[in-house]
């Protein structure tokens, strides 16, 4: 055993993993106190939180997207900001602006003071993000990618952890501006918020038509979130798993090796490098939530839909045929083998 490895305390890592798993459980429970059902959406949102990415929630109105985000923000003891995107929203309404400081007498002091916009928070709810113009949407680009904003030539770093949760409504097309591909690519995950089942709906009705419930408990501090994010990065990934992720990403493009026929027919552009990175990071978050120090093929498969669905641009033929990006990702998952061919053959030999 080398010195480097002997110094490592496996029990420490194990304890940290156990803590992460416990924290996630507590967080789920806290959210579950407010949100009925939607456990998959909650889990996927947690992947985004732990992996240090941003999440785009898409669902019909009234499914509790905004409430979910507000609840998560409450549980995390983080500074929460909400931006309601409207067509007349300006970039400066998000980032903030310098305003002239007035004296007590009402005259100008000749000095400017920064009025911080709602982006200067830690959990940002970008509600109905597709209602704003692309120009305004783009105001989020720098903040999401670099965790900083530039106002009047001055770069301001945002507080960590910085976590954007955006929502969009897929039903209303009038007066909406689809997110540009570059903007979409910044989101680690795109989570589809499904309609609640009968039991869930019954629970929602029961819970929301009586007395208003209390605020959810604060489960994680800002420092703990950062610790969990750091721990997520420490999860090990074997080379075959990385190679599998790479093969998946390449197979989403029509020119990629191993791309299934559906991809060649219905896809114009597949996922890129950022898509691969997101795949591995999200898989690490999955492993972390299960207190594992390594990533499995199954983790990659679990996150593939949420990570890749918004990074695939369909061709005209794909759109005309009504092929969804989810169908494309499922085809890719079915077509790309997890293990090298000889191993696969040995496993299948009967």
């Amino acid at each position: 055993m080398t010195a480097a490895t002997s110094d490592l305390a496996p029990r420490d890592l194990e304890a940290r993993l156990a803590f992460a798993q416990g924290a996630a459980t507590r967080l789920r429970e806290a959210i579950g106190g407010v949100i009925v059902g939607q456990s998959a959406v909650v889990d996927q949102t947690l992947w985004g939180l732990l992996a240090g990415g941003h999440v785009l929630l898409e669902g019909a109105p009234g499914l509790g997207k905004t409430l979910l985000v507000r609840t998560i923000a409450s549980c995390l003891d983080l500074q929460f900001s909400r931006i309601q995107f409207t067509p007349d929203l300006m970039p400066s309404d998000i980032t903030g602006t310098n305003v002239l400081v007035m004296s007590a007498t009402g005259g100008s002091t000749g000095q400017f003071q920064l009025h911080r916009g709602p982006i200067f928070g830690q959990v940002i709810l970008a509600d109905e993000i597709n209602r704003a113009t692309p120009k305004t949407q783009s105001a989020l680009l720098e903040a999401m990618q670099e965790h900083a904003v530039t106002i009047a030539g001055v770069r301001h770093r945002l507080d960590e952890p910085f976590f954007v949760l955006a929502t969009e409504n897929p039903l209303e097309m009038e007066g909406t501006y689809p997110l540009p591909e570059a903007q979409l690519d910044r989101f680690l995950l795109k989570v589809l918020v499904p309609s609640p089942s009968e039991d869930e709906l019954t629970g929602i009705l029961a819970r929301t038509t009586g007395h208003a419930g209390g605020e959810p408990p604060r489960v994680l501090s800002s420092a703990e979130v950062l610790e969990l994010r750091a721990l997520c990065r420490e999860i090990a990934v074997a080379e075959p798993v990385l190679r599998y992720a790479a093969r998946l990403v390449r197979a989403t493009g029509p020119e990629g090796a191993g791309a299934p026929d559906l991809v060649r027919r219905a896809v114009r552009f597949g996922a890129g490098v950022r898509g691969g990175q997101s795949l591995v990071l999200a898989a690490k978050a999955v492993a972390l939530l299960e207190a594992r120090a390594h990533v499995a093929f199954a983790d990659i498969q679990r996150v593939a839909l949420a990570v890749l669905r918004h990074r695939i641009i369909r061709s005209f033929e794909g759109e005309a045929d009504g092929i969804t990006t989810d169908q494309v990702v499922e085809q890719v998952l079915a077509a790309v083998p997890t293990r090298p061919e000889p191993v696969q053959q040995a496993l299948e030999a009967r």
Binding site: A236, V237, A238, P240, V241, R292, H294, V295, A296, F297, A298, R339, P340, V343, A346, L347
Partner: peptide, 16 residues
């Protein structure tokens, strides 16, 4: 290692 992981449900712990 990949073979063993697949056969034993090791979630790629051996491979890693």
């Amino acid at each position: 290692a990949l073979y063993l992981d697949a056969r034993t449900g090791g979630e790629e712990v051996v491979s890693t």
